[in-house]
């Protein structure tokens, strides 16, 4: 059964697992509160709509949204997201990191850091050009982007400058080092996408 839960990326550190130093990312997984239970009969698929993220003050919650939260008796939060159904979940129940299987790997999905309009060196790791030796006005450019009369155009998907980052990235098969239900944190080996404080989705098959 697939499971998923939302958390917040806190940051990285390292711990000593036995003798070995392990780089870990700390993810805070506060209980995800169920706002709506979707089922096959009514919606055509089953899922849980959960409230996650920091609390949202009353004036930022529209009446329609407030009604939705009220139905489940859940305080408004910044995000409403869907996760796969969990047995016995009902309105207002809390999904905790307990649902994660510590021995299995986890897929982490998050929005990567936005880099704005980036050049090809940052975006595609192009090598750029000489800093000296007479190089003039072209140090970080892409160089040639195509041929001449034939084909007389630039190929599709040519790597060029453009918007980079702020895209949904999934990193698969990361190891869970530890799940601490007391502090509501999950330690994941290695790095995960997005800025500190960003919303992350931890899912397992």
């Amino acid at each position: 059964m697939s499971t998923a839960i939302f958390g917040t990326k806190i940051g990285m550190t390292r711990i000593f697992d036995g003798d070995v130093a392990v780089p870990v990312t700390v993810v805070e997984v506060q209980p995800n509160e169920v706002v709506e239970v979707k089922d096959n009969e009514k919606h055509g698929y089953s899922a849980l709509k959960v409230a996650v993220g920091p609390a949202k003050s009353g004036k930022n919650v529209g009446k329609a949204l407030a009604g939705e939260y009220k139905k489940a008796d859940v305080a408004p939060r910044r995000f409403l997201r869907e996760i796969p159904s969990v047995d016995g979940a009902e309105l207002g129940s809390k999904i905790t990191a307990e649902t994660l299987n510590v021995d299995a790997t986890v897929n982490v999905m998050a929005i990567s850091k936005g880099r704005g309009f980036a050049g090809v060196m940052k975006r595609y790791n192009f090598a750029g050009h000489n800093a000296t030796h007479g190089a003039s006005k072209s140090h970080r450019g892409p160089g040639a982007i195509g041929c001449r009369m034939d084909p007389g155009r630039v190929w599709k998907n040519k790597k060029m400058p453009g918007h980079y980052g702020h895209a949904q990235i999934t990193v698969r098969n990361l190891k869970i080092v530890k799940v601490d239900l007391e502090k509501n944190i999950v330690l994941i080996k290695g790095s995960i996408p997005g800025p500190n404080g960003g919303l992350v989705n931890l899912s397992q098959k």
Binding site: I10, G11, M12, T13, R14, I15, F16, V24, V26, E28, K183, I185, L187, N196
Partner: peptide, 13 residues
């Protein structure tokens, strides 16, 4: 340092 990260580190100092 974030308090949560600190609490993780403390166990391993």
């Amino acid at each position: 340092i974030n308090a949560l990260i600190d609490s993780v580190q403390k166990e391993h100092l």
